[in-house]
């Protein structure tokens, strides 16, 4: 479903991502972990075709993102960091715009939007301007935009960042509901989230992959058997190595 092959990104002299490769299959929820600034967002932006890679490539549903970005974008749902959305639009208008771009027209588009509003629990705010929504609703509106067209691959950049525990629970529940028939990638630095929803995780530090395995396998790497310790072991080493 999704193959990432040697993705590399330079910003001037800074190497933000260096040769990241991994795969994800249908039915898999892949956690993409790393400290802040490790290159998670940059990697996701390259997979979604927003940023051109300096080297390497990503293939989504068999389409190469460099050769056919529009085909890749068609099979992707993407929830960017901080859930950007057009503040002056209402939730319904915003989703209808998304539906229009995704090729749902007329009644099909309106039905699609209505269904998505129900699955994402947005009924209460559907006629409200996005700028007036609370963070949780805003996040869900942007989430709704990402799943509207039922994409086979879903990429989410810190989907629960800044939400309260109830909202986090709700978002995770929605992710789990969809997990069986999609390939889902979630970037996060919240480790409890990984244990709650992910089948496998990739840990990235300083632009490189330092671990790739199931949460249990990763736990087993540390003496105390916790994910937090493994995470620290793998990512702190790296940072020290690079800083001195």
């Amino acid at each position: 479903m999704l193959e990432v092959d040697g993705l590399t990104k330079h910003f001037g002299p800074i190497e933000a991502v260096r040769g990241v490769s991994f795969q994800a299959d249908k039915g898999e929820v892949l956690g993409f972990l790393g400290p802040n600034g490790a290159g998670k967002t940059t990697t996701m932006r390259m997979i979604t075709g927003f940023l051109p890679p300096s080297a390497g490539t990503a293939r989504v549903c068999g389409h190469d993102v460099g050769a056919d970005p529009v085909a890749v974008k068609r099979c992707l749902g993407y929830l960017p960091e901080n859930a950007p959305a057009y503040d002056s639009m209402t939730v319904t208008d915003f989703l209808r715009f998304g539906a229009g771009i995704r090729g749902f027209r007329g009644k099909a588009g309106r039905d699609r939007v209505d269904e998505t509003i129900v699955t994402c629990r947005l009924e209460k705010v559907r006629h409200q301007a996005i700028g007036t929504l609370s963070k949780g609703y805003r996040q869900r509106t942007c989430f709704a935009q990402a799943v509207l067209h039922d994409p086979p691959v879903l990429i989410m950049d810190e989907p629960t960042d800044g939400l309260d525990p109830n909202q986090k629970h709700l978002v995770r529940e929605m992710i789990r509901e969809m997990a069986s028939e999609k390939t889902i990638i979630i970037s996060t630095h919240i480790l409890e989230e990984v244990e709650a929803v992910c089948d496998r995780c990739v840990i990235i530090s300083n632009g490189e992959i330092v671990a790739n395995g199931s949460p249990d396998e990763l736990k087993a790497k540390s003496p105390s058997g916790t994910l937090a310790e493994t995470f620290r072991m793998l990512t702190l080493d790296k940072e020290e190595e690079n800083n001195g």
């Binding site: 979604t48 960017p80 901080n82 950007p84 771009i101």
Partner: peptide
């Protein structure tokens, strides 16, 4: 940041 949304649409 909506540019990221806009330009990752098909």
């Amino acid at each position: 940041g909506t540019v990221e949304l806009l330009l990752t649409m098909p």
